[in-house]
């Protein structure tokens, strides 16, 4: 187990408003981690900082020992919370695009997962249902051999069967060399698949612990603890 992600005293402001307000955390490889917090807590901002889409105002952030940049691009596979793919493209064309873009992309694996879902590879993205579109996006992101997968709200707005599919896909692609960071506010749906949880509130980490330790110590689910911590 090596340290895959390390943040120290990380700050990010939007204008005068702080979004990430002094975050220090460390993530080891081979872990599935939930980044949990209410809306506006800073989950997406933190993920964008790690992916290199945003740069911090101060503090340090390293992925496998490297600052976000050219060296970390091959290490990080990022699923944004909004659809960023061209809707006019077919599933096959998008897989082709990912194959061109990412050296570590495994098109056979992507096609295998897409076919198992019964999605026609000639189908255009715009003709897919919302659930199927989200599944395709997740398949693309998980078909890379990255070291850190960043999934921003992968289960928001999908039905329970799709949610189970997403969880199975994450388990199936588990590797001891890689870690998966999943941001969500739908905790009870996903907590059993997590090794660790990070609670974030107003841009600050309020708790980082393992799921089983939380349940042991508090005799309650992570979801119940979350409701307590974030009561308003």
């Amino acid at each position: 187990m090596s340290e895959i992600l390390k943040c120290e005293n990380l700050y990010k402001n939007y204008g005068a408003k702080p979004a990430i307000n002094g975050v220090t955390l460390s993530v080891e490889s081979g872990r599935i981690i939930g980044l949990l917090g209410p809306n506006g807590a800073g989950k997406t901002t933190l993920i964008k900082l790690i992916s290199g889409l945003l740069t911090p105002n101060s503090g340090s952030l390293t992925i496998d020992g490297n600052e976000p940049g050219i060296k970390t691009k091959p290490l990080v596979s990022y699923l944004p919370d909004v659809n960023y793919l061209n809707n006019w493209m077919s599933v096959e064309q998008i897989v082709g695009m990912f194959t061109d873009f990412y050296e570590d992309f495994r098109p056979e694996l992507a096609f295998e997962m897409i076919e198992r879902l019964g999605i026609d590879r000639k189908e255009r993205l715009k003709n897919l249902s919302k659930g199927n579109k989200e599944k395709v996006c997740l398949i693309l992101v998980m078909s890379r051999s990255a070291k850190l997968y960043l999934l921003d709200e992968p289960i928001a707005g999908v039905d329970p069967a799709t949610r189970d599919y997403i969880i199975s896909t994450i388990i199936n692609n588990y590797s001891p060399d890689a870690s998966v960071l999943i941001s969500t506010h739908l905790i009870s749906d996903i907590e059993s698949v997590l090794d660790e949880v990070i609670f974030i509130k107003d841009g600050v980490i309020v708790l980082q612990d393992t799921v089983d330790h939380i349940r042991e110590e508090h005799n309650q689910s992570v979801d119940e603890l979350f409701r307590e911590v974030f009561k308003w």
């Binding site: 081979g30 199975s168 388990i171 588990y174 089983d212």
Partner: peptide, 14 residues
């Protein structure tokens, strides 16, 4: 390990 993880919907580490 993977089969049990999928059956129970839990992380392979557990």
């Amino acid at each position: 390990v993977r089969e049990v993880a999928l059956k129970a919907g839990v992380t392979p580490n557990t």
